[in-house]
């Protein structure tokens, strides 16, 4: 019995020590992680509002994860000064073929697309290089949400299936916002 308690006690103490160290390390670096997250969102907001500043114009809500959707992995609400949700930032994972590139897309509460950012790091360089230029981004945004056809985008870009998956994800994001609105 004593031997069992000895082993159990030491193992418990070790687990507690590990948990405490992990907690401390996370606390120390979390401001840096938060800063990076804020900068990424700010870059996204600047795609349609050049002088926007998060914390001033919008406050960032907690990220919610979505498991029931093939392309939408999560969303972050942005609130205006009055505390009302005015924008949803969706984390989209296109990539039926190339499974690892992530898109942050901002929608108005009616599902209209405002802008999007492709997280370059997730995709191989050749795809990054051929991903939408600023003008293409503008043209997609001008279609106001999910009204564009994927074939039109192919024609604009003259590029590969990457765009098709991107457009599909953006459309799905818009549909996701609309369905949430209907549920509410």
């Amino acid at each position: 019995m004593n031997r069992f308690l000895n082993i159990w006690g030491k193992l418990t103490l070790f687990c507690i020590a590990v948990a405490v160290i992990l907690g401390v390390v996370h606390e120390v670096v979390s401001p840096r992680i938060e800063k990076h997250r804020k900068e990424t969102l700010e870059n996204l907001v600047k795609t349609w509002k050049k002088d926007a500043r998060l914390g001033k114009d919008y406050t960032i809500g907690a990220e919610r994860f979505v498991q029931s959707n093939r392309l939408v992995r999560g969303y972050i609400p942005l609130r205006d000064k009055a505390g009302k949700v005015v924008i949803y930032v969706l984390r989209l994972m296109p990539g039926r073929y190339l499974s690892t590139y992530s898109v942050l897309a901002a929608y108005q509460t009616e599902g209209e697309l405002l802008g999007f950012l492709i997280e370059k790091s997730l995709s191989p360089p050749v795809l990054t290089a051929s991903l939408p230029s600023a003008s293409l981004q503008q043209r997609i945004a001008q279609t106001r949400g999910g009204d564009f056809k994927s074939n039109e985008i192919e024609a604009i870009s003259g590029a590969t299936f990457t765009f098709r998956t991107l457009v599909e994800a953006l459309q799905e994001g818009s549909a996701f916002i609309k369905s949430r609105r209907r549920e509410q």
């Binding site: 992990l22 390390v25 670096v29 840096r32 992680i33 990076h36 370059k120 790091s121 997730l122």
Partner: peptide, 26 residues
């Protein structure tokens, strides 16, 4: 436990200091 501990430490540090790599490794 020790290996998992070091993996978690590396994950946290990568997320903070090399976020692009952290996202890419997923």
């Amino acid at each position: 436990l020790i290996i998992a501990f070091w993996v978690t430490i590396m994950e946290i540090l990568l997320e903070a200091f090399l976020p692009d790599i952290w996202e890419a490794l997923g």
